[in-house]
Design a protein around this nucleic acid. Structure first.
Lengths: 296, 296
DNA sequence: GTCGACTCGGGTAATTCGGGTC
DNA sequence: AATGTCCGAATTACCCGAGTCG
């Protein structure tokens, strides 16, 4: 485990000389820590950020604990779906991680990754499961793998600023699909929110309690699977009644419309996908993007 | 908790060599006490102050009650349970991570962490949930947090060697408790196995398919919650019949005995806890410890 | 008092620093 | 303007026999 890297390691991994790296550090392109003796120490997160911003190739990723081969030039997200599907069904987490991180290092955002790569592929696996081409265990294992990658991606995001608006959400009782709400969390975190997923299969009552206690500026609800639509609607309405009337609620997922119905309640929004959810979030509370440290 | 730390503990917890730490102490960058025999003893406050000045990762500024480090003896894992419970219930992931990682960096293994810190604390949360002191969302959020930490811990483990024996497992239909099977996975991985958790709420039929396809040298089954005991036993017996007769199966979790019953099948073992599971795994396939991963 | 684990101090090899030059 | 290479001084990491801790 190595949180801090030496200039030599970083230089080797991105394929430049130590001098260049040191210059970049001194110019502020890469922020560094210093030991008491004045030696530079670089966080992996900083290296990842630099690679993404500069679209710099990564020649020796293993030095950073990144998957071998990561950082190559890659084609479109859509063209990687096939490879991702294969690695997920084979249970090859290393390959899965490589596919995803390739695109991330190439500058793709978490939003794009989720919406155009991860979600469609998971959807395909779901379809193949229904028609018998994929085993249940493969589907579950794929979800574990994606879960792991999403955690890793989040670890590269900067910590939310102290004045970041808070968002919270989860999926209701009977809906055990954790990835949807996790994707929402990470996408909002990328946008600068202090987002917390409460998990899946949550009774509305406890979500309401959480919302009342923490008073988030946004609450999301992810509904992928419905057991009893009447119960769900009832619970949702009670949730709306027991929480702060000014708190906006975004409902997303495959069954979002079924839950919301024809409700005209202005605080309830439908987030058909992550992009529209993000637009709603921006409308609720725009976050000024911190200007990159250097005007370039 | 101990107020005075040894150089070794401090060096490990901040990721520098003991030599550097000692040099910094002698230079006055870090003030120390001395034992009558001349050994250095460092106050927690000093460590925290130093880390804050250096913007060093892995420890946060807030000092009070910081369960940093571990005595090398006695029940320090046990004494951290309270702090962990508090951070989990508050949803403070940073604090949760710190508690766990401090022990890990002080040399505690994943096994000890799971068995003596994580599992007992989660159990406490479960109890408090039953008696109404804890909300469902707090329990779920705590699980998410622990899940995240376990993924992080696993990422620090060396990759399994190519000839590592494979292990596989999961929890059966209706049991949505993912952490138990995840803990098994990470503990086995720490021991050198190529362990893969298939996830939770898996039909026995698909677990059998996975076992037949991948032919692991060990299969584990984690049973924390039972819906229909007859169905479970039936499924388990069918699982035994359809998989390789030589493949050992370890059943663990709160309801392990209920599933196995009075079975005398020699390939079925009861893993009352992670420690006994590990002993069984060692009996099945002892792994020669490779040279310990050099911390560089 | 025994004993294993830890620490001391000092020596040595490997890195890194900053700067100058190509 | 930017990068790569070279250099002496300083810093850090690793090693080991003797002494200390609990």
């Amino acid at each position: 485990m190595q949180e801090l890297l030496s200039p030599k390691q970083v230089a080797a991994s991105i394929g430049v000389s130590e001098s260049s790296l040191k210059r970049w550090c001194d110019q502020g392109v890469i922020t560094t820590e210093k030991t008491p003796g004045g030696h530079r120490r670089i966080r992996i997160r900083e290296v990842v950020r630099f690679l993404r911003e500069q679209s710099h190739p990564l020649v020796s990723p293993e030095a950073l604990g990144l998957p071998v081969g990561a950082g190559r030039r890659v084609a479109t997200l859509e063209s990687s779906r096939e490879a991702l599907l294969a690695s997920l069904e084979a249970g090859d987490h290393a390959a899965t991680r490589r596919v995803v991180l390739d695109h991330y290092l190439a500058g793709e955002g978490v939003l794009g990754l989720c919406e155009r790569l991860l979600a469609p592929t998971l959807h395909t696996i779901g379809d193949r499961w229904v028609c018998g081409a994929t085993e249940v265990y493969q589907e579950r294992r794929a979800c574990e793998s994606i879960n792991r990658v999403l955690f890793e991606l989040r670890s590269y995001l900067p910590a939310p600023s102290p004045d970041a608006p808070a968002a919270m959400g989860g999926s209701p009782t009977g809906d055990h699909y954790r990835l949807a709400t996790l994707m929402v969390e990470v996408v909002l975190a990328e946008e600068g929110w202090d987002a917390t997923s409460l998990g899946s299969s949550l009774p509305f009552a406890t979500m309401a309690t959480a919302a009342v206690r923490h008073q988030p500026q946004l609450f999301w609800l992810s509904v992928s699977h419905v057991h009893d639509i009447e119960e769900l609607r009832g619970g949702f309405n009670e949730f709306l009644e027991t929480t702060t009337p000014t708190m906006p609620v975004v409902v997303g997922g495959r069954e979002a419309r079924a839950v919301v119905g024809a409700s005209l309640n202005p605080r309830v929004h439908i987030g058909a996908n992550l992009t529209s959810l993000l637009e709603i979030a921006r409308g609720v509370h725009p976050i000024a993007k911190a200007t990159p440290p250097r005007g370039h």
